[in-house]
Measured scan of single mutants.
Amino acid sequence: LTVHVGNVTYHFDNPEQAEEWAKRMAKKYQGQIHVKDGQFRIE
């Protein structure tokens, strides 16, 4: 699973971990989480 934050990409084996990280990053950067094809993108 991949989480994109700006132009930085993080890889996770565990979906719960990826989702948790995406939520934390979205809160930190006050962005929206977009989920597409098993990838999380924070914008």
Rank of each mutant, 00 (worst) to 15 (best):
N7W: 11
W21T: 01
I42H: 04
Q17K: 12
A26P: 01
A18R: 02
V8E: 08
G38Q: 02
K28Q: 07
G31Y: 06
A22Q: 02
K27Y: 10
A18P: 00
V8T: 11
E19W: 15
D13W: 08
Q17D: 13
R41T: 15
L1P: 13
N14H: 12
K27W: 07
G6H: 11
I33A: 04
Q17T: 11
V5R: 02
G38W: 02
G31C: 15
Q32M: 08
F12W: 02
I42T: 03
R41Q: 11
K23I: 13
V35I: 14
Y10K: 04
E20G: 05
K27P: 04
E16A: 13
A18E: 01
L1D: 04
G38K: 02
P15M: 13
E16S: 10
Q32G: 04
N14W: 06
V3W: 01
V3Q: 01
Y29H: 08
I42A: 05
G6L: 09
Y10H: 04
K36W: 11
P15D: 05
D13I: 09
A18K: 02
H4P: 00
D13C: 14
T2R: 06
K28L: 12
I33R: 00
Y10Q: 01
K27F: 10
K28F: 10
I42V: 11
R41S: 09
G6P: 01
K36C: 13
G6D: 09
Q39V: 12
R24W: 13
K36T: 13
D37H: 02
E43T: 08
D13G: 09
P15S: 14
D37Q: 02
E19M: 14
V5P: 01
R41I: 15
R41C: 15
W21D: 00
E43M: 05
I33T: 04
Y10A: 02
K36M: 11
Q30K: 14
V3H: 01
M25K: 01
G38N: 07
A22I: 07
P15H: 12
E20A: 12
E19R: 11
N7C: 13
K36I: 15
T2G: 04
Q32F: 08
G31M: 14
V3M: 02
Y29R: 00
T9Y: 07
K28V: 06
V35P: 01
G31N: 03
G6K: 05
R24L: 15
Y10L: 03
F12S: 00
L1G: 13
G31W: 11
K28E: 10
K27H: 12
Q39R: 03
E19A: 12
L1E: 02
G6V: 04
